[in-house]
Write a protein that binds this DNA or RNA. Structure first.
Lengths: 246, 246
DNA sequence: AAACAGAGTTTCATATAATGAAATCATGAA
DNA sequence: TTCATGATTTCATTATATGAAACTCTGTTT
């Protein structure tokens, strides 16, 4: 509705994708906007601490950290679930991730790294496709049927490994399986050598469609281990639901 | 520089202070702005997921969470320090806070709650005055002299307990003491029954002026305990500085 | 050391697009 | 059913965001 505001956030979104990579001129070229306008908008965003300029390169600013910390999702949901996930991570000594669906993607909400983890993949705040992550497939399995189909039918499948699911039919088959067994597995479908196992997490009172996972190198996650972990995850799911009930 | 952007953030800042409290009309009245303008700016901010509207009440939106997670400070500094502070919290079984200075205030960056803590005071993203927190006093003790004086001379002292420091002279005395002994204490100066102990944390390579603390009810923090904790904090400080050196 | 190149910054006239008063619509209370 | 309150839309106005061009600053080349 208000174009000036939208344009300002186009710049912020660009910086978000590549912090410390863009100079004024780069921004102007990339977005195809006027130099003076860009200059002034950048200056304004800097004054507001939304962006930070270091050596003429732009970074996300500290105000975003402040405000981001106060988002309902963070203060109410993530922080309540966090200690439970920490316990889970310590119990099985693997990395735990929490996610929710947002704009047809998986949004990573929280992460507890195990000491032995080898710093793989995503960080908090990142978004990834639904179809190639165990987190995403879990979430798809609890969405209302029509919403799920709407999303699945609009996915543009791209293979990132040779195991990545690459068509809706295959995906829906898997989703139906997940509905039966209650957990999903990503067996190197997103990254070679990486296995994840997730259970869906629906918090009615918060209208929260999400999931949480354990992930690690494929060597450690044989079939027997996965079955054991699935049971543990399901138990933790109940604990979380109970804590977030009211 | 660009007024439209500034006005948009005036609205966002208002919502930040009182999420779920303001309706369109409230915002118009509080900020003294035009209704149509407010309406359109709110709609734009909603489209951008900067704000979220539920029952005509406004909350901070999920985009702020996403972007806030990607701020340099969070990704590089806080997340590297976090596991160290977690260990500290487990070792002494008390609540740990990490903070830095921002706009002459203490900005809370991270928090690890001990199981026995009684959910007191501040959360991540909050800002508090420098002069009535141990975190703030620690930071003041490592700032360059002129910056420190500049800040201290502009403080408007307000007593929140009968022990709160209420003049610059007293504060500077304390700062000098902290410089000698290497840690600061907040003995119920901000909240009755609450004691904190902090050590300053300066990360040269990151131009980071901050501090971290242990806090809890005054019953548990007698003089001997404080001395013991001060030593532990100082050790952890060295660990952090070493880890963040490069 | 002078000239150049490439970047950021400022100026100023212009027209776009943000603005605000008033009308309209929606909702819930009397 | 009417009333009242608040959200939304319309439309004319002009304030102000915009962009071309000039300028400055910095570091590099000749």
């Amino acid at each position: 509705m208000n174009n000036t505001i939208k344009k300002a956030f186009e710049i912020v979104n660009l910086i978000e994708k590549n912090q410390g990579k863009y100079t004024l001129t780069d921004i102007v070229k990339t977005l195809g906007i006027n130099k003076t306008t860009a200059f002034r908008n950048l200056k304004t965003l800097e004054e507001l601490n939304i962006l930070e300029k270091i050596n003429n390169l732009y970074y996300l600013g500290i105000s975003l950290f402040e405000m981001g910390s106060k988002v309902y999702l963070k203060q109410i949901i993530i922080e309540k679930i966090h200690p439970i996930l920490r316990k889970l991570s310590e119990e099985v000594n693997e990395t735990v991730n929490l996610a929710k669906i947002h704009n047809g993607m998986v949004l990573y909400l929280d992460k507890i790294e195990s000491k032995r983890s080898l710093q793989i993949q995503s960080s908090i705040g990142d978004t990834l496709p639904l179809y190639c992550t165990s987190l995403g497939k879990s979430i798809l399995s609890i969405l209302p049927e029509n919403e799920m189909l709407e999303i699945v039918n609009n996915i543009k499948f791209e293979k990132t490994t040779h195991k990545t699911i690459s068509n809706p039919k295959k995906l829906i088959e898997q989703i139906n399986k997940i509905k039966q067994i209650g957990h999903s597995i990503d067996d190197e479908e997103f990254e070679e050598g990486l296995i994840c196992i997730s259970v869906p997490l629906y918090l009615e009172h918060h209208n929260f469609y999400g999931s949480f996972s354990l992930s690690g190198p494929s060597i450690r996650f044989d079939r027997a281990t996965l079955l054991r972990l699935a049971k543990i995850l399901t138990n933790y799911k109940e604990i979380i639901i109970k804590k977030l009930k009211h």
